[in-house]
Computed example of a mutant assay.
Amino acid sequence: MTLSSLSEAEPMTDLVAVVTTTGSRADALRLAHLAVEKRLAACAQVSPIESVYVWQGAVQHEPEYRLVLKTTAARRAALEATLAQAHPYEVPAILTVPLAHANRAYADWVRAETTPA
């Protein structure tokens, strides 16, 4: 965000980012397409990461894919439920991060794309 775009940003928005991880790019893309097609998210980014965590008593170090989906607070619960139902993990991390500031035009676009048809 540039200094000039700060004046165009909404100081408090109803936008959130919902974040999850998957073990494969194919699963991340499947979840991304599902969410966008159902208008639960306006967009999704998929990126490779490495995760270190404890699972069943042992430290694991695995490649994963992070999925970040932009939506509104009003659509968050439906998005989280859809992700939980379609997720391949037994215990998926599905986290929501409020987006306190966003470019006004972008925020309007996210709202329009997540409004049910």
Results as ranks from 00 to 15, higher is better:
Ala26Glu: 15
Thr96His: 01
Thr21Gly: 09
Arg75Ile: 05
Glu50His: 12
Leu15Lys: 11
Trp55Ala: 00
Ala28Phe: 04
Ala102Glu: 08
Ala42Gly: 13
Cys43Leu: 07
Tyr89Glu: 08
Gln45Tyr: 05
Ala117Met: 11
Thr2Ala: 10
Glu8Leu: 15
Val91Phe: 07
Gly23Trp: 07
Gln45Thr: 15
Thr72Gln: 02
Leu83Glu: 00
Pro92Phe: 06
Ser24Arg: 04
Thr2Leu: 12
Arg76Cys: 10
Ala78Tyr: 04
Glu50Val: 13
Thr2Gln: 11
Thr96Tyr: 03
Lys38Trp: 06
Thr13Arg: 12
Ala77Ile: 01
His61Tyr: 11
Leu99His: 04
Ala28Trp: 03
Ala107Leu: 09
Val18Pro: 01
Ile94Phe: 11
Glu8Met: 11
Thr115Trp: 14
Leu40Gly: 04
Glu64Asp: 06
Thr72Lys: 02
Pro116Glu: 14
Thr96Pro: 01
Leu69Arg: 03
Ala77His: 08
Arg111Ala: 13
Val97Pro: 03
Ala35Val: 10
Val110Met: 02
Lys38Leu: 10
Ala26Val: 15
Leu69Asn: 06
Val16Asp: 05
Val59Thr: 11
Glu50Asn: 13
Arg39Phe: 06
Pro92Lys: 09
Glu64Cys: 01
Thr20Leu: 09
Tyr53His: 08
Ala28Lys: 02
Leu31Ile: 03
Ala44His: 00
Val52Lys: 02
Ala78Glu: 13
Ala41Asp: 05
Ala35Trp: 03
Thr22Met: 10
Val68Arg: 05
Val110Thr: 09
Ser5Ile: 06
Leu31Val: 08
Leu34Val: 05
Ala112Pro: 07
Lys38Val: 00
Glu80Arg: 07
Ala44Gly: 12
Arg104Asp: 13
Glu8Gly: 06
Tyr89Arg: 06
Leu15Thr: 01
Leu99Pro: 04
Pro88Ile: 03
Ala117Pro: 14
Pro11Arg: 12
His61Asp: 04
Ala107Phe: 10
Ala117Phe: 08
Tyr53Phe: 13
Arg111Asp: 14
Ala41Met: 02
Thr72Trp: 03
Ala93Leu: 07
Asp14Val: 12
Leu67Arg: 01
Ser4Lys: 09
Thr2Phe: 02
Leu79Arg: 00
Thr82Cys: 10
Ser5Asn: 15
Cys43Met: 08
Ala102Tyr: 02
Val59Trp: 04
Leu15Val: 04
Ala35Arg: 01
Val19Ser: 11
Arg111Asn: 15
Asn103Gln: 13
Val46Ser: 01
Pro48Trp: 05
His61Arg: 11
Pro92Asn: 10
Gly23Ile: 06
Val54Ile: 12
Gln56Val: 00
Ser7Asn: 06
Leu3Asn: 04
Val97Ala: 05
Thr82Asn: 00
Arg39His: 09
Ala102Ser: 11
Ser47Asp: 14
Ala32His: 05
Gln45Lys: 00
Leu95Tyr: 11
Leu31Gln: 02
Val91Pro: 01
Ala81Thr: 13
Leu40Val: 12
Ala84Gln: 14
Arg76Lys: 13
Met1Arg: 08
Arg104Ser: 15
Pro88Phe: 02
Arg66Ile: 08
Gln45Ser: 08
Ala74Gln: 14
Lys38Ala: 13
Ser24Trp: 13
Arg111Phe: 07
Val36Lys: 09
Ile49His: 06
Val54Tyr: 10
Glu50Ser: 15
Val18Arg: 04
Leu3Ser: 15
Glu62Asn: 02
Leu6Gly: 15
Asp108Val: 10
Leu6Thr: 08
Ser4His: 09
Ala86Met: 00
Gly23Pro: 05
Gly23Tyr: 06
Ala42His: 00
Glu10Leu: 15
Leu15Asp: 03
